[in-house]
Computed example of a mutant assay.
Amino acid sequence: MTNSISYPQKNLWMAAIKPPMYSVAVIPIWVGSAIAFAETNTFKGLCFATFLMSAIAIVAWINLSNDVFDAETGIDKNKAHSLVNLTGNKQLIFWLGNLFLSLGLLGIIAIAWWQKDLTVIWLILLSCALGYSYQGPPFRLGYQGVGEIICFFCFGPLAVAAAYYSQAQSFSAACFVASIVVGIATSLILFCSHFHQVTDDLAAGKKSPIVRLGTLKAANLLPWLCGSIYLLTSLFVVLGSFPVWTLLIWLSLPFALKLSRHALQNHDRPEQVSNCKFIAVALHFWSGLFLALGFVLAG
């Protein structure tokens, strides 16, 4: 059991705020905008900055609201770094989350106003609705083990396409294909976050993929999931969908290897495997950074 006595209060707050996790907001916007630049040779800095801040605010809403919804089911009763547990005020966290959501949507509305086009709003609203369905009542689809699928679409095809559209006001086949790679990398973070909390998930009736597979099978599956990022990128280069520069993504391979080895060696030891998700965050960040850089260099 984890408790607040075990860790300094500052560490608990940092773990609750989850600064590294906000890369899931940054990378889709970076990738979508980079592809738009490569294909149109234009870059709208104001739209990019506004979308980036909006995405960060929306991810803050997701993190805060998930803490609230998890508190309602009791799954976080042993989670010392839950914001609800740290503050003891569920309503405060709930409304703070809604404030971040409002700020994020205001930024998206501004982009749509500048473009005189509602497409970006619809894409982000759909993404937010899916994000709510992950933990929010009455859906709580994450408890049925489909959270990774929701994560894939929210931070892959929907977010990357919206970022591209905010720059080009059109859609792109290359953008869609790249969004698959980004979606897989993002879903890996959620997948890895369950290794250390199997006991709590089982007690709350949450059927995460790790619960369904068992930690050993999940750890053995992880190298294949990581490898798909590189194999798909290489395939799309061969098919001509991606420029050859996107093979820079292979520079992030050490993080994939580290993640796979760490999970396999520690899959059944919660204390040791708990940082698995942060290795997945690093993989997500660097793979997305290099993938987008490949498009920028090609452009």
Rank of each mutant, 00 (worst) to 15 (best):
S166Q: 13
L125V: 15
L99M: 14
A185H: 03
L96M: 14
Y165T: 09
N89L: 05
H81M: 06
S187N: 11
L105R: 00
A80C: 02
L190M: 12
E148Q: 10
S179D: 06
D67K: 06
I149E: 04
C128I: 15
H196K: 13
E72L: 09
W122C: 06
Q167F: 09
S170I: 11
A129L: 15
I111T: 06
N98Y: 08
I111R: 10
S82V: 02
A110Y: 15
I189T: 06
A60F: 14
F152Y: 15
G147T: 05
Y164P: 02
F94L: 07
A129W: 09
I109T: 12
F94C: 00
C128M: 15
Q144H: 10
A185R: 08
G145F: 06
G136L: 11
A173M: 13
V68A: 07
Q115L: 13
A159K: 04
E72M: 08
G183F: 09
F155N: 01
F171C: 01
C128S: 14
S172D: 03
K79N: 15
Y164F: 12
K90M: 12
L130M: 14
N85C: 09
S166L: 07
G147P: 09
L141P: 01
Y143G: 05
N89V: 05
L105C: 04
I184S: 03
I75C: 13
I124E: 11
S133G: 04
G104L: 02
G142E: 04
F139R: 02
K79H: 13
S172K: 01
I111C: 11
P137L: 03
S179K: 05
K90G: 01
T119F: 11
A162L: 01
D200E: 15
E148T: 07
Q197D: 07
G97H: 07
I93E: 11
S179M: 04
E72F: 06
C192K: 07
F69Y: 15
C151Y: 10
S166V: 05
C192F: 08
G136S: 06
I111Y: 06
F153C: 00
A163Y: 07
L188C: 02
I75M: 12
I124C: 13
A110L: 15
L125A: 13
C151Q: 13
N63K: 05
D70F: 09
A178K: 03
A174G: 14
D76C: 09
V160A: 08
G183Y: 04
I121D: 00
W113V: 12
I150Y: 03
W113T: 15
N98S: 06
N85I: 05
Y165G: 09
L83R: 01
S127G: 15
L86I: 06
Q197F: 03
V182E: 02
A163C: 03
K90T: 08
S170Q: 14
L83S: 10
F152D: 03
V146D: 07
